[in-house]
Simulated assay, not measured.
Amino acid sequence: MALDISFIGEPEFFSLVVLPLLIFFARIADVTFGTLRIIFISRGMKLLAPFVAFFEIIIWLVAIGQVFQDIGSVVNIIAYAGGFAVGNYVGILVEERMAIGLNLIRIITQYDAEELILALKSDGFGVTAVDANGKHGPVKLIFLVVKRKDISTVIKMVHQYNPNAFYTIADVRSAKGGDIPHLYRKPRKRLTGRFRKGK
């Protein structure tokens, strides 16, 4: 028994199903591009932001044009709004996966930070450490600028060597000079002897 799919070509099916889906996915695409564009602007990416904006506005014009052709269609309006909501979420996920940009990590340790500092340096990170005093006595302030994709590596090392350390992460708009690991970092050297999990 053959499956009857002749209804797909019906005008009513197109207006109630196909067109709303096209609007929905077009809106997801253009809002995703818009989210990325805002993030690129905030990070000072002067060339990438307008490139993304070009495709964003083209897709938006297509989607809004379809809505205006039948402005009274509740289905189209819902599809447009739903695509806008989902597009924001997808845009954030895409940006997180791309992991573009630099971050400043500030670490405050209340215990001996020698093992953590040496571990970070052995993994290719540029580290600046300063002696300071906190609420409960002497502390060590550790600063390093890393690529976003390397944040998880640094945090794992903090948890390993100084699990009670306090740390903050902030975006860096631009950086020049210093020692920022390259895209393909050298593999971390094995630490032996006294360089083991700290207190």
Results as ranks from 00 to 15, higher is better:
Pro163Glu: 06
Val18Gly: 10
His159Ser: 15
Ala165His: 01
Ala26Gln: 05
Leu47Asn: 15
Ala165Gly: 04
Asp179Gln: 15
Val31Pro: 09
Lys121Glu: 14
Arg185His: 07
Val139Gly: 00
Ser15Ala: 14
Ser15Thr: 12
Leu22Gln: 07
Asp150Lys: 00
Leu47Gln: 15
Phe166Cys: 04
Phe166Asp: 06
Val74Asp: 14
Gly82Met: 00
Ser122Glu: 14
Asp171Thr: 09
Phe13Leu: 10
Leu141Thr: 00
Ser152Trp: 11
Ile5Glu: 10
Phe54Thr: 13
Ala99Leu: 02
Ala63Tyr: 00
Ile151Gln: 02
Ile92Met: 08
Gly83Leu: 03
Ile151Pro: 03
Ile169His: 05
Lys121Thr: 12
Gly177Val: 00
Gly193Gln: 08
Gly72Asp: 15
Ile180Glu: 07
Ile28Arg: 04
Ile28Ala: 08
Ile105Gln: 03
Ile107Pro: 09
Phe33His: 00
Arg27Asp: 10
Ile77Ala: 06
Tyr80Lys: 05
Leu19Ala: 11
Tyr167Gln: 00
Ile71Gly: 06
Ile117Trp: 00
Gly124Met: 11
Phe143Leu: 14
Val146Ser: 00
Lys149Ala: 05
Leu36Val: 13
Gly198Ile: 05
Gly124Trp: 07
Ile23Ala: 02
Phe55Asp: 11
Lys147Trp: 07
Gly126Ala: 11
Leu118Ser: 08
Tyr89Trp: 12
Gly72Phe: 11
Ser174His: 07
Ala129Cys: 09
Asn133Lys: 15
Phe13Val: 09
Arg173Ala: 15
Val86Leu: 12
Val75Tyr: 09
Leu144Phe: 01
Thr35Asn: 09
Asn76Ile: 04
Leu48Val: 14
Arg97Thr: 15
Ala85His: 05
Tyr80His: 00
Gly126Thr: 07
Val17Glu: 04
Leu21Ile: 13
Lys121Ser: 11
Val145Arg: 01
Ile58Ser: 09
Lys186Gln: 06
Ile58Gln: 11
Ile108Tyr: 13
Arg188Gly: 11
Met157His: 08
Gly34Asp: 02
Thr168Asp: 05
Ile64Phe: 05
Ile100Gln: 01
Val90Leu: 10
Gly34Thr: 05
Ile100Asn: 03
Arg37Leu: 08
Thr32Ile: 07
Val17Ser: 03
Pro187Phe: 02
His182Cys: 13
Asn162Ile: 06
Ala81Tyr: 09
Asp179Ile: 15
Ala29Ser: 12
Leu118Ile: 13
Val62Trp: 10
Ile117Ala: 07
Asn88Asp: 02
Val31Cys: 09
Ala26Asp: 08
Gly134Tyr: 05
Val127Asn: 03
Phe40Met: 12
Ile58Thr: 12
Lys149Val: 09
Ala113His: 06
Ala29Lys: 02
Ile64Gly: 09
His182Lys: 03
Val127Trp: 07
Val31His: 05
Val172His: 02
Thr192Tyr: 15
Phe143Gly: 11
Arg106Gln: 15
Thr153Met: 07
Leu183Gln: 14
Pro50Gly: 03
Ser73His: 07
Tyr184Gly: 08
Glu12Tyr: 11
Ile105Cys: 04
Asn76Asp: 12
Ile107Leu: 04
Thr109Gly: 13
Phe143Met: 13
Leu16His: 14
Ile23Ser: 04
Thr128Glu: 13
Arg27Ile: 09
Ala113Thr: 00
Pro50Trp: 03
Gly193Asp: 07
Glu12Trp: 13
Val62Asp: 11
Pro11Tyr: 06
Ile107Gly: 01
Gly134His: 10
Val158Asn: 08
Pro163Trp: 01
Arg185Asn: 02
Arg37Val: 02
Ile41Asn: 00
Val154Met: 01
Val130Met: 13
Ile41Phe: 12
